[in-house]
Every structure is written in structure tokens, then in C-alpha cells.
Design a protein around this nucleic acid. Structure first.
Lengths: 334, 334
DNA sequence: TTGATATACTAAAACGTTTTACTTAAAATT
DNA sequence: AATTTTAAGTAAAACGTTTTAGTATATCAA
């Protein structure tokens, strides 16, 4: 049983395909189709359950009403939450989102961009990784709206929405210092992306501003994409080797691993030892004691991204690029 | 700068479009195209960076190498983890996944099915809700492979992959009873889907088998989709109103809410009070004490789903429907 | 030498839309 | 009465592929 086509509808209504198309696309008035015909065709469409073939439509028009979302890993709660928010907001405005994970793998990211490109998505929301600058530049050359988020690629002239990681990280460390901490560790990730570097810079700047010597041995850079057991081993080693009274984790999964270590070595979080996580996670609030964290304003980030996209899609001329930095919030928990 | 088309390649190579198409699709040998021509065309394709337009391809062939995944909520870790696994496995076999959340909203689910249908996805993986039986039946009528997972719709003749919730729930309660618990609560969700009902049935059966009277007041059915504050209120009320020594939560987010309540009312999990969650969650392991849980074998579920789909896609005849029930595992933690 | 078969390739239809550039008749304007 | 404008619609091209049904030449078997 083949699906109905516009031809079938035209046949049934005894009008031309063109007329049906005009009616479907709301151009009936402007193309001076009579009310009687409009009514008749609309009734047939409803009764028959006809749905236009979007593939044919896309082939003809070159667009799709679909926005492609490329993220690092959908199973990370930061990304899945933001994906959900973006999806909701886009949906309300008549756009669908399709998303896929890169796993921080350059080839996979490139393939995804090509997949989305060949599917003619109207715009791209990308949490990028180093190595895909050229591929993104190609999108920009084709005048496709591209919004980077979470991580910026400064060499690219496009839009970016992200949190102020430098300030957030600075404030986290500052709060440690105000509690009288002196030996403050940073567990971060060994990857050359701007937002991670900013977190490190914020950490360093705070120490310097408060005249605390920066000890590089207190900075643990976890290799990217390594199995969690390894990460746990390294964090455990740091905690044992150095006398530490506070630790800032640069991502939520590092913090989760860190909390597992604390549990394993039976080290308590208390007046002697403080922890701040990043990006929040349900486990943080629930933990005993609750874990303070640097919270990115997901709702606001999602909203900003969607607004930027829609502005661009509705404007015929290229809008100026915007770099929107949204403050992150330090949530202190006891 | 328009994208290259097959026509451009044909022109450059001084051959027909047909020849190029055969070469692209690996049919050159079978269509007896000479090696020299194959080489020449392939070189031009590589050098020019030509990528076939998938939309045109889909329009012509009616398929897309894309599998549609429809889930309840991508921000729920059960779904985001399984989405990630499915994505990985499909990707390795040359299929892409596009996914979207229904939020348990019938209309949204229907729209998504229509979206995917109009995008000509080759197969559907659906975590269904009541009310979309007809829409799914339409897919089946069109002979599209459909795999339901997590929840079954028994009135539909199609494939299903899910965990054995009845047994899992039974075993959870049984383990409570073996610990000497008598007043065992179930916090579940008020929704008419099979896998949730099974969890309730397993709970009841275990109590009956061990001659413990079933007290309906110990079963809290949380309305679906209500804000978490409400849920917390209701659980708090249950814990205060009744003398309870064990509680089984029927989903991971209910367990999370329950743990928040325990924290708020400062009730400890210890020899006097036991908790089992469902579907696992990073917070469970990290919690002090760690929370036991009923773990669905995500990896196995994902693998089974993909296998079923690929079998169907590669078979010309309709394969018999399969209902695959995979045991869930009770993970006891201290 | 003739008909069959293999080799090497191609023209054109088809997929289902949108959109441009018409046509035809009626109404309005001069 | 002749011309212009408006109303109501339509034919056909175009989007970029895949695939069917060829064609033309060379080779082979009888």
C-alpha cells in the first residue's frame, strides 16, 4: 500500500498538482485560488490523511526544518539535559532536532557533519572538538547557521554560547580560600579545548591573586577518553601522595570518579576536606554531605542557542556573529 | 557555491551519469564498466570531494540508512545510556540513529512517528506509550521493521525486547523478606504501561508467596509527569504515615526523589530500613550507603535490538515476530 | 557467415515536491 | 469598443539520484 502523493490528491479533487501545492503551503490566497477549491482540497487532504513527502520537499527546496545537534556524548547528563531543553524549545517553534554523539572522535564528528549536511539540516548546533575547524568552515561557507556551544573554537568566525568558565572556576577556588584552604587541587582533563583551559586559568589566577603558590603537582590532568578505572587510580594516587584540603573537579564525570575514590579510601568530606564539582549531577545533591558545584545555566544556554538560530534562519542577510558568555553559578551545599 | 552533483562528475569524466552512479554504488563490475573508467571516475570523485545527495537518493530508493529511535525522555539516564549504546552499535554497522523524546505525550509521539516516516527512516525503535498503537500499526502495515523496547504493547504483533520486570521486582521484594523485612512499600508510577504493572505484580506475588499481607496503603502510585516537588511531598507523607522497613522504587527517578526525602527527613538507610532502586543511576553507587538496585542489562538490550533490526532489514521476507525477555539483575550493595 | 553472447556503456523515466511562467475568462478602465 | 487588469488556475521544469531498458561493437560457437 503506497503512500498517497500530491498527485492522488489533485486527481481526487480534480484540480492540478500546482493548486494542491499552493493550498498545502498556505499560498492559496496570494495565488488567488477560490475559497471553494481551498475548502474542497483541504477536506480531501484531511480525510485521506495525506502527508507531504518531506524528502521530496527537501530535495526541491533545499531545506528541512530540522536542526542538527552534535554533542560529545548523549549519555553525559550535562549534554542529555541540554539536548532535552533544546529539543523542547525548538519543537515549540516548529523545528525538529536530530542529534548524535561524537565521542570526541574527530572522524565521527566529521561524518556526522556530513550526514547532517547530506540530510540538508537547516542549522547546526555543535559542541565542537579541535580538528573539525575546516569542516565547520565549510558549513559557514555555505551560509548555514552554526552555533557552537559549551566549547569555542576561537579561530572560527561564528556564534558561540557558553558559560564563563574562567570566572566560575576562579570563584570556586576563591570560596575554598575563604574557608581557609591552602592546598587546593584541580582535577581536570588533558584536552586542548578552550573551556577546559579556562577552568585551569581561573584556578591559577585565584591562587595567584590570594598569594597562594601554584603547585603544578596539585593539578591532575586526566588523559581524555581513558577507562574510568584508570582515572580512579590516578585520582587515588593524587589524594594519597599529596596533602590536600580542597579539590575542584573540572567536569561532572571527573567529580563522580573522585567521589568514588573518596568512598573507596574512606576519606570524608568535612571541615578538613572540601570538594567542588562542575556541571552538576543528581548524585551531587544526594551525596552525604551534598557536593557544592559550579552550575551552568542550562535553560539559559538552550534558550540563547535557539534564539540565535531562529534569528539567523529568519533573516535573509547574514547577521553579525555573537559570542555570548553566560555566567555560571557556584552552588554551595552543605 | 553550489554543491557538486553526479552530473558534474559525469561531465568531468566524460561519461554518462549512469556510469558514475554504478561506480558509486559498487555495481561497476556487475554492469561491466571497464577498469580504466572506474579508476578515472573514482579519482575525480575523490579529488573533487563529491558526496552524493542523500535526499535525492532517499527520494529515489525510498530508504535512508537511518534508524529512528523514539524514547520517553533523553535526559533520563536509562534512556540516554541505551541511546548511546544503540547509536554505537548501529554506527558500526553503517546505520545512523536519529532520536527524539516523546515526554510521554501521545501527540508528540505521533508527530515523531510522522516525522520519521516522512524522513523515510528504515526502521523504528520505540519505547512506546499507550495511545500510539494505531500509528505503530500503520508502520507495520507498510512493512517497516519496528522494535518496541522497555515497554510492550501486547495488542500489537511486532518485536519486543525488554527486561523481565516481574521476576526482577519479585526478587527485590524477596531479598527484603529474607532480610526479615515485613512492612515493604512500593513507590511506583500511576501509568498504564505493561512494564510498570509487571513491577507491581512481582511485588505483590512475592508478598503473597511469603504469606505477607498485601497492604495497598504501602503502595504509592505517583501521578505521571508531575513536578518533582509534588512527588517528594507524597513520598514524605508515605514515610511518615506508615511504619515501613523497606521500600522498592519502580524507576530510577522515583528512587532519586525518595533518597532526597530520606535526606530531608534525616532518615538513615541501615539495618532497620532498606531501599532498592530500579534501572541504576550513578547516584546509587555513590550514595552512603550504596543503594541496591535492579539493573537492566543495557548492553544486551541494545545489542538484541540492533540484531533484530538488521536481521529484518537484510531479509526480504517478513521474519516471525520475537518477544525477547532478558533477565534483569538485582545488584545488592552495602 | 550468421546468429548468439559478452562487453562497455547510455538515454530517459521515475521518485514527489515547489515554483516559474504561462493561459483563459471575466471585470474594470479608458 | 478596445484595452488593461484581475481572478483562477495549470503545464512543465527543476531538485539529484537510481534503475530499466536499451544501443553498439566485439567475440564466439556452429
Amino acid at each position: 500500500m503506497k503512500a498517497l502523493s500530491i498527485k492522488d490528491i489533485a486527481l481526487k479533487a480534480n484540480v492540478s498538482i500546482t493548486t494542491v501545492s499552493f493550498i498545502i503551503n498556505g499560498k492559496a490566497k496570494e495565488k488567488s485560488i477560490s475559497d471553494a477549491v481551498i475548502k474542497k482540497v483541504q477536506k480531501i487532504i484531511i480525510d485521506s490523511g495525506y502527508k507531504p513527502n518531506q524528502i521530496a520537499r527537501s530535495l526541491r527546496t533545499g531545506n528541512s526544518n530540522i536542526i542538527g545537534l552534535i554533542i560529545e556524548d548523549i549519555s553525559n547528563s550535562f549534554f542529555s539535559r541540554i539536548a532535552r531543553l533544546i529539543e523542547d524549545k525548538a519543537y515549540k517553534r516548529g523545528y525538529k532536532i536530530i542529534y548524535s554523539s561524537t565521542e570526541n572522535n574527530v572522524e565521527k564528528a566529521q561524518e556526522l557533519i556530513n550526514l547532517f549536511k547530506s540530510r540538508k539540516v537547516d542549522a547546526y548546533i555543535i559542541s565542537p572538538i579541535k580538528g573539525i575547524e575546516e569542516d565547520i568552515q565549510l558549513l559557514l561557507n555555505e551560509h548555514k547557521p552554526v552555533i557552537l556551544f559549551d566549547r569555542n573554537l576561537p579561530e572560527l568566525n561564528t556564534n558561540y554560547v557558553g558559560a564563563n568558565h574562567f570566572v566560575a572556576s576562579y570563584q570556586g577556588v576563591e570560596s575554598f580560600i575563604r574557608q581557609g584552604k591552602k592546598s587546593i587541587a584541580l582535577v581536570t582533563i588533558d584536552i586542548d579545548v578552550q573551556q577546559i583551559i579556562e577552568r585551569y586559568e581561573g584556578y591559577k589566577k585565584a591562587l595567584i591573586d590570594y598569594a597562594i603558590p601554584v603547585d603544578e603537582e596539585l593539578v591532575l590532568k586526566i588523559p581524555f577518553n581513558q577507562p574510568e578505572v584508570e582515572t580512579i587510580k590516578q585520582i587515588k594516587h593524587l589524594f594519597k601522595a599529596k596533602k590536600i584540603d580542597a579539590v575542584l573537579f573540572a567536569t561532572n564525570y571527573l567529580a563522580i570518579s573522585g567521589l568514588k575514590v573518596l568512598k573507596q579510601i574512606n576519606k570524608k568530606i568535612d571541615d578538613q576536606f572540601a570538594v567542588i564539582g562542575y556541571d552538576d549531577h543528581e548524585a551531587f545533591e544526594l551525596h552525604t554531605p551534598s557536593i557544592s558545584t559550579i552550575q551552568q545555566p542550562l535553560e539559559e544556554i538552550a534558550e540563547t542557542i535557539i534564539k540565535l538560530i531562529l534569528n539567523q534562519l529568519s533573516s535573509k542577510t547574514k547577521l553579525p556573529d555573537q559570542q555570548i558568555i553566560i555566567p555560571a553559578k557556584l552552588i554551595l551545599r552543605k
